[in-house]
């Protein structure tokens, strides 16, 4: 299987281990990644927060590039990139004034046919049975809180992915590799996202609530699918008072561990909160 790959800016910076682990895991699952040529930033929160045209315009550039490369599917691991591109695709499809203007800037290209998928959908495509069959490690003692955040599932009318309020797609993957997903309350609550820099106090506060709820429900690891969520939950733990430290893993890292990939190769040494407590629980299958 071959899919287009749009790593997005964070994956060469703060989300470096996300990129590393994705490449390693997909190699094991026989998924070939074709990186989008000379891709550009999707515009992220800053673009749509300040200018609608800019946000759709920036994301569209990548969609058109994918079309040029004849990619049927474009995998965007970052939830924010995924969301922005899905939204941009939706707007282009609707043929709004903005869409017309953007099409004029791009030699009349109007529809972006490429299908944008997130990491959960990619794993679903690779096949849960396939992943299950390739699982080498015993993850029995691991209780995982799957954290979806905002942008994977919302707005449901556009993402059309899982359930906006009680999603379970990530839990299915966790179960497939033999770990135990926990039922908790904050899986779609916001971590504060892009306010990390301008309003650190908000992000610390919101992320703390998420971590506290996960711990309270017995989780010993939080699984994420977004570099922004990861940096807020992982990096900001140090600023939280009275909060138990809990490893925050990317979904790809977690699946990587299950498939028997070395944690360093997955980039897990790059975390700010130690991942040791979880690594101890990863046992070799008997």
């Amino acid at each position: 299987m071959k899919v287009g790959y749009y790593p997005g800016c964070s994956l060469s910076g703060t989300g470096k281990e996300y990129d590393l682990s994705i490449r390693k895991v997909l190699e094991k699952l026989d998924v070939e990644l074709a990186e989008l040529n000379d891709w550009s930033c999707c515009g992220a929160t800053s673009a749509h927060a300040t200018n609608h045209f800019l946000s759709i315009g920036l994301s569209s550039l990548n969609l058109f590039q994918a079309q040029k490369q004849n990619l049927e599917e474009l995998f965007a691991p970052c939830a924010a990139c995924y969301n922005r591109m899905v939204v941009a695709k939706d707007e282009l499809g609707k043929g709004t004034e903005t869409a017309k203007k953007i099409s004029a800037l791009n030699n009349g290209e109007s529809t972006a046919k490429v299908n944008i998928i997130n990491i959960i959908q990619l794993f679903e495509k690779a096949g849960l049975e396939n992943i299950s069959a390739k699982t080498k490690m015993n993850l029995k003692g691991i209780k995982a809180a799957c954290y979806y955040g905002c942008l994977l599932v919302r707005p449901f009318s556009i993402t059309k992915f899982d359930d906006a309020e009680q999603p379970v797609a990530m839990e299915k993957i966790i179960s497939a590799v033999g770990a135990e997903p926990v039922d908790w309350n904050y899986k779609v609550e916001c971590c504060g996202g892009a306010h990390s820099i301008a309003h650190k106090e908000i992000v610390v506060d919101l992320s703390k609530k998420i971590i506290d709820d996960a711990v309270k429900h017995g989780a010993n690891v939080i699984i994420v699918a977004c570099p922004m969520c990861h940096s807020n939950l992982d990096m900001r733990q140090r600023a939280m008072k009275d909060t138990a430290a809990i490893p925050v893993l990317y979904l790809s890292e977690f699946v990587g561990l299950a498939l028997g990939i070395d944690s360093k190769e997955l980039g897990m040494n790059l975390h700010f909160t130690s991942t040791e407590p979880i690594l101890e629980k990863v046992l070799v299958k008997e």
Partner: peptide, 9 residues
């Protein structure tokens, strides 16, 4: 606004 879309959804 953190653009989390909870309101919209």
């Amino acid at each position: 606004c953190a653009s989390c879309l909870t309101c919209s959804s």
